[in-house]
Computed example of a mutant assay.
Amino acid sequence: MKTYIVLFDGVCNLCNSTVQFIIKRDTHNQFKFSSLQSEYGQNFLKERNLDSSDFKSIILYEPEVAYYTKSTAALKIAQNLGFPYSLLSVFLLIPSFIRDWIYSLISKYRYHLFGKKDSCMVPTPENKRKFI
């Protein structure tokens, strides 16, 4: 079974809700999580020469294979959650510049629309093993 690491903006309410959504539907226990603000997240960004202060994209990391950002990351997560969420992978047929434009628009206004926490979420004791 493959393991994927989802890196997310730890203070974003939309991102935190997305993580909770994934956890509830991860029946094969294949996803681990880390905030982009954490030591792991910061090291990940720096090792790949990515901006370590720009948290406008979720990142899906498939160790030893690749990492994906923005809409591709979101759709590949859905693809790995099984039916019916895997049906969303059909949107991978749309060119990424179109998908990412929509993703970036939502990302730009996410704090305004969904709110922001003062600090990163703390995982519940039952979910702690899923976080890096």
Rank of each mutant, 00 (worst) to 15 (best):
F114L: 09
R129S: 15
S89D: 10
T3M: 11
L50V: 03
N80C: 05
Y67Q: 01
V122H: 15
T69A: 08
S71N: 01
I98A: 09
F97S: 15
K32H: 06
Y109L: 08
P125K: 02
T124K: 00
S35Y: 11
K24E: 08
D51E: 03
K56N: 10
L7V: 05
S34E: 12
L105N: 05
Y40R: 15
K108A: 01
S52T: 07
D26C: 04
W101T: 13
Y4A: 09
P84H: 04
N29S: 09
F97T: 03
Q79T: 05
I132T: 11
A66K: 00
L36Y: 04
K56H: 13
N49C: 10
K24Q: 10
T124P: 04
P84L: 02
N13C: 15
R25C: 01
I102S: 10
L93C: 15
A73N: 05
C12W: 01
W101A: 13
Q79D: 14
K117E: 08
K2Q: 14
F91L: 15
L75G: 11
I132N: 13
K117L: 01
F83T: 11
D118L: 14
L50Y: 00
C12S: 12
S35Q: 15
S89V: 03
I94N: 05
G115H: 05
D9F: 04
P63A: 09
N127K: 00
L45Q: 09
L113R: 00
P63M: 02
S89W: 14
I23F: 08
P95Q: 12
K24W: 10
I58W: 09
T27V: 13
K130W: 02
I102L: 04
V90T: 12
P95R: 15
D51H: 01
Y109P: 11
Q20E: 00
S17F: 13
Q30V: 12
S86D: 10
L93Y: 15
F44Q: 01
V11Y: 15
L7Y: 06
L93D: 14
K130C: 01
K128T: 12
S86Q: 12
F33V: 04
N16M: 01
V6L: 06
L81M: 14
I5H: 13
Y4E: 02
S107L: 07
D9V: 12
I106K: 10
C12L: 13
S96D: 07
S53V: 15
I23W: 02
F83L: 06
Y109G: 06
M1V: 06
E47T: 06
S104G: 07
P84V: 10
Q42T: 04
G10N: 14
Y4V: 04
V122D: 06
Y61E: 08
I5Q: 12
S38H: 07
V6Y: 07
Y103F: 00
F91I: 11
E126G: 13
